[in-house]
Nucleic acid binder design. Structure first.
Length: 636
RNA sequence: GCCGCUGUGGCUUAGGGGUAAAGCGGCUGAUUCGUAAUCAGCAGAUCGUGGGUUCAAAUCCCACCAGCGGCUCCA
């Protein structure tokens, strides 16, 4: 039985039209003041134990009635609360029994007619307890007469709660060691951090995450108070970095063989295959309520639906497989307020999302391994070495028993101990997944690359291919994000730079992602003309000129605050000798934080930078190359 | 969503029942400078929003919004 309680100032209802299951009318219309209105759907299972459902419902109702201080009760049959309704006869019987039960306990009770279309007006009081819902369940296998309450919950969620998992560490020999017995030592301190985060999911910290301050100061991104939280604004430098990362992931995935597609960002909640997802995380959905004949829509949380719906309509032969498609998908997840942090966790983010349709588990495993390696390559190029992240591999026990060697293989490829999570049963769509997790300055872990083997959605979306015998078969689907969310990569780059700064290394971005790659600093105004004359020779790099009327010291300092990798000072000497005095941030002198200074000519500098960014995407500087022309986006 | 802390010019902060102070940034002027902040002057704030208490509120109270931390959670 589903119950929805509303403490109201009044309710007015009027029976309009009969349905086939209508009971005889006691009162056609009614207005009741100060009522606790109880919307009720009697469900199929309630028929098994009518007495106890009625008793329990009466108990609940009276308890809430007393708590909110209502004066009377209105029972309002409301079929829409459930999709597994009891038979109409039984429903009427139970509703009447409930009314009589409440009446017998001295309550003033009205019951709206069952089986009628009714018009109603209700004014809810709006205090904290004025809207409550309850579900009363007769559990299968329970003793006769035993009635147990549970919260209404989707089946997937219930299964997830029942599923139990265990953490292990797997070493390079393929030995599974329970994680709390593993000796992490100094070498695996980061893995230990990650395990603690995964198992306890709590860290006592009292600091603002370093990347939040950095993303503002470096004019990368910022909060936008006029939007929904977690929807950020990106300044030109941030947009540049984001676009470069997207360019990189896009071309890498294309080289891997995935076809880029675009699918809608919003979908109708009515689609049967989408329903399960939505019901699992209803509160995390951005949704729009349709009016009139327009459907209710929700914003996608990943590219899965679009690509699955596309796959359903494709004609796929075993000869075409594996089929890979990719999308740089703007995605929306209405995460709870307390979970949002800077660029780490957003409500709107860009998810590179690739799906691979495989003929069978063998092919899926083969692809899985390749995508595992792809993830490592992508992270390496973005600027994360394997010591910057920790590997997690998660699977069901059944899967592990059948594929032990495969898992050991993955651990060997990682080349270091890996955190293993083993579930006793499958509770969602996948049997195996891995993630590469970045552990930040505050000990928080977040996933970057990930791949999952999905054994469920081909069925749900009716995706099929024709095998060698001409029969239709269900593919196995791999979900892959080779880099993880683009914004999260930016967060990890910032946190990594911060961690390095703590260790005495000048913080910076990889050269290919640095907004300004080379800054030219004329010492006095008379050197400006020469500086501008060498700009054409540096085309193809992001070069700017600090032409502001400031002292050299100040310009150097500002370039350092912007993490600029190459800073070239030009004065009388350089004009004369046609050289540049270049400070290289990445090569610092011993313990001093100052970059190494080196004389070189323009061509040398250009060659050096080009060498360093070879094979990476390039975009022009999105700002004026003269600092005096540039606006400040953030304070100062 | 719940609990706690915070919210003062563009930025960072001080102050705290009698309508605001500083540094940075901006503007103006001087300086044309050799590797991590040149000097001086000027402009700029009804102190997050909305209520309330008070003769008087940025300051006290309430609600809301936002940020941060914790809980929870992350398809």
């Amino acid at each position: 039985m589903q119950l929805l309680f509303i403490h109201s100032d009044y309710i007015e209802y009027e029976a309009k039209e009969k349905t086939r299951v209508a009971e005889e009318l006691e009162t056609k219309s009614e207005r009741v003041e100060e009522a606790l209105v109880v919307f009720i759907a009697v469900e199929h299972e309630d028929e098994q134990n009518v007495d106890y459902v009625v008793t329990k419902a009466a108990e609940e109702t009276i308890s809430i009635f007393n708590k909110v201080g209502a004066e009377r009760i209105v029972l309002y049959p409301y079929a829409h609360l459930s999709s597994e309704l009891a038979s109409p006869d039984k429903s009427v019987e139970i509703l009447r029994a409930l009314r009589d039960n409440l009446h017998a306990q001295g309550m003033e009770v009205k019951k709206a007619p069952f089986g009628w279309y009714k018009a109603f007006t209700l004014r809810c009081k709006g205090h904290p307890l004025s809207e409550l819902s309850r579900k009363i369940t007769v559990l299968e296998g329970a003793e006769v007469g035993e009635v147990k309450e549970v919260e209404a919950k989707s089946k997937a969620l219930e299964a997830e709660e029942k599923a139990e998992s265990q953490f292990f560490v797997m070493d390079d020999q393929g030995t599974l060691i329970p994680a709390d017995e593993f000796d992490f030592g100094a070498e695996q301190a980061n893995l230990r951090q990650f395990f603690l985060y995964e198992s306890e999911k709590r860290r006592a910290v009292d600091k603002v995450p370093p990347h939040v301050e950095l993303m503002k100061r470096l004019e990368i991104a910022d909060y936008e108070p006029s939007s929904d939280p977690g929807n950020l604004r990106f300044y030109p430098k941030g947009e540049l970095i984001k676009t470069l990362l997207e360019d990189y992931v896009r071309t890498t995935v294309a080289e891997y063989g995935a076809a880029e597609v675009e699918t809608p960002i919003m979908y109708s909640v009515k689609h049967p295959a989408l329903k399960d997802y939505i019901e699992r995380f209803p509160a995390r959905q951005y949704s729009m309520v349709g009016k009139g004949a327009k459907p209710d829509l929700f914003l996608r949380f990943a590219a899965c639906f679009g690509q699955f719906l596309m796959s359903k309509d494709m004609s796929i032969s075993y000869k075409n497989m594996p089929v890979k498609m990719f999308e740089l998908a703007p995605s929306f997840r209405k995460e709870k307020r307390g979970e949002l942090v800077g660029l780490r966790r957003l409500r709107k983010f860009t998810m590179p999302d690739m799906h691979t349709l495989c003929r069978d588990m063998d092919e899926a495993l083969n692809e899985f391994k390749m995508q595992y390696e792809l993830g490592m390559r992508v992270l390496d190029s973005i600027g994360f070495s394997s010591s910057d992240y920790e590997v997690a591999i998660r699977f069901t026990k059944d899967f592990y028993d059948a594929n032990k060697d495969f898992i050991t293989d993955l651990v060997n490829i990682a080349g270091k101990p890996v955190l293993i999570e083993m579930w006793d049963q499958r509770f969602f769509y996948f049997v195996l997944k891995f993630e590469f997790n970045f552990v930040d300055a505050l000990g928080k872990a977040s996933a970057l690359s990930t791949v999952q083997i999905d054994v469920e959605n081909a069925e749900r979306y009716d995706i099929k291919y024709i095998d060698t015998s001409g029969a239709e078969k269900r593919p196995i689907i791999l979900h892959c994000s080779p880099s993880g969310a683009i914004e999260r990569c930016m967060y990890a780059l910032l946190e990594k730079a911060y961690l390095e700064k703590e260790r005495g290394i000048p913080p910076m971005f990889p050269l290919w992602l640095s907004p300004t790659q080379v800054r030219l600093i004329p010492i006095a105004e008379r050197h400006l003309e020469y500086v501008e004359s060498i700009l054409p020779a540096l085309s193809g790099l992001r070069v700017d000129v600090d032409d502001r009327e400031e002292t050299v010291s100040k310009k150097i300092r500002d370039a350092g605050r912007e993490w600029i990798p190459y800073v070239a000072v030009v004065g009388d000497k350089e004009v004369e000798t046609k050289t540049l005095s270049v400070t290289i941030r990445g090569e610092s002198y011993g313990n001093t934080k100052k970059g190494k200074k080196q004389e070189m000519d323009v061509l040398e500098l250009k060659t050096r930078v080009e060498q360093e960014i070879k094979g990476k995407p390039f975009r022009q500087l999105p700002l004026s190359n003269k600092l005096s022309k540039r606006v400040k986006f953030v304070g100062g």
